[in-house]
Every structure is written in C-alpha cells, then in structure tokens.
C-alpha cells in the first residue's frame, strides 16, 4: 500500500470511528438542541470519511464501502483516541476538543502539501470543520475548570498526541497548553473497537455482496 493510501485511510478511519462514537449520543445528549447539533457534527465526520475513502479507493482499486466496512478490525488505522467508548459528556467534549484541535493542524498540513487533489479536499473539509471547532471550543470554554472535564482532558491527552505524526505534536502541545507526554500511538486497537466494528458492519455482513 502506498504511503498516500495509508495516510488517507488513517484519517478516514479517524473520521468514521469518531463519527460513529459521536452518533452514540443521538437521542441522549444533554439537551435537545445539543442532540441535534452533535448528531449533525457526527454526520459531517462520516461525510468526510466517505470523501477520503473515495480517494483511497481509487488508489487501491476498490470502493469506499468496502474500505469502510469490509476490512477486519485490525486493518483499521484509526488512532486509539477515537475508539474509546466514554459515554460521559466531560470525556466526549474533552475528546471532541482535543481531536478538533489536532485535526486543524493535520488539515492545514494537507492544504499546504504538494498533493493538489488532497489539498483541495482538505480545504473543503476544513471549511466545515471551522464550525466543529467553534462548537468544541465553546463547550471547552464552558467546562474549563470543572473537575470532571479537566480529569478527562488529562486522561485523553496522551491519546490526542497519537492522532498526529511525531512532527505535528509540538504544535498540538502548544495549542492545547500542555507538555508533551508519551503518546498512545496508532496501531494497537482496543476491545472497544472490535465491539464497535461488530455493530457497525452487522447490516453489511448480514447479506454479503448486496448492493445497498
């Protein structure tokens, strides 16, 4: 697999799995208004995953659906941050805020890259991510100083560093105002991802080869 396809899959898997995790709040978010907003953000992330899978699928001679649903859990390249299942609003916002901050740096690097196609897609995604960042920042500002939120950021910080390559981590630490620590790197998956995968692919696996 080319380095480009590997990178595309890593980002696409991050967006798909995070979109899935965020969508677990649909119907039970802290308020009706937040429920609608967070579900919409989750849908956006999955839309970004689809666009990235489509680019990768062309390089790999396959389809976006096959990439999203037909790989084994261990073949996913997502960062451990997005896999965690923490159905607790403090953790959810801590992850959302840390991920969006990291994702902004990652998208900026792609926009500035020499890959015109990927730079174009990254710029489009970033125009939607602006609103995710606004949403994340607004919540982070509101929860800052709350013990549960601060504890969640402490817990997730090593995972957030693992979203970016080594050369992006200093900028993330600066942005978030924290010291770099040992990151939780991509590559190892949690049991939580396997459970998510079982659920996420269950419909597709129920009739192999069907066109949906």
């Amino acid at each position: 697999m080319s380095g480009r396809a590997e990178m595309l899959l890593a980002i696409a898997d991050d967006e798909l799995i995070l979109g899935w995790r965020d969508s677990e709040w649909t119907g039970i978010a802290p308020s009706l208004e937040e429920d609608v907003a967070f579900s919409s953000i989750a849908q956006n992330e999955i839309g970004h995953a689809r666009a990235l899978y489509e680019l990768a699928a062309r390089d790999l001679g396959t389809t976006a659906d096959e990439l999203a649903f037909d790989r084994a859990p261990d073949e996913y390249r997502c960062a451990p941050l997005v896999e965690l299942r923490r159905l607790d609003w403090a953790h959810t916002i801590a992850r959302h805020w840390l991920y969006e901050t990291a994702d902004e740096l990652r998208l900026a690097a792609l926009v500035a890259s020499g890959d015109a196609e990927l730079a174009g897609l990254a710029a489009k995604m970033d125009r939607e991510e602006v609103y995710h960042r606004m949403h994340a920042q607004m919540w982070a500002d509101r929860l800052r100083g709350e013990q549960r939120f601060e504890a969640a950021v402490d817990e997730l910080w090593p995972y957030a560093l693992g979203v970016l390559d080594a050369d992006g981590r200093a900028a993330l630490a600066q942005r978030v105002g924290r010291e770099q620590v040992e990151p939780v790197e991509r590559g190892n998956h949690s049991e939580e991802l396997r459970e998510l995968w079982q659920e996420m692919t269950s419909v597709r696996r129920s009739v192999p080869g069907a066109t949906w």
Binding site: E33, E34, V36, A37, H135, M138
Partner: peptide
C-alpha cells in the same frame, strides 16, 4: 454563542 451554534445546526 450556544444559541448561534445550535441554531446553525438545527
């Protein structure tokens, strides 16, 4: 600020 974000999504 929350009102704007929520109105935007809704």
């Amino acid at each position: 600020e929350f009102a704007e974000a929520w109105a935007r999504e809704q």
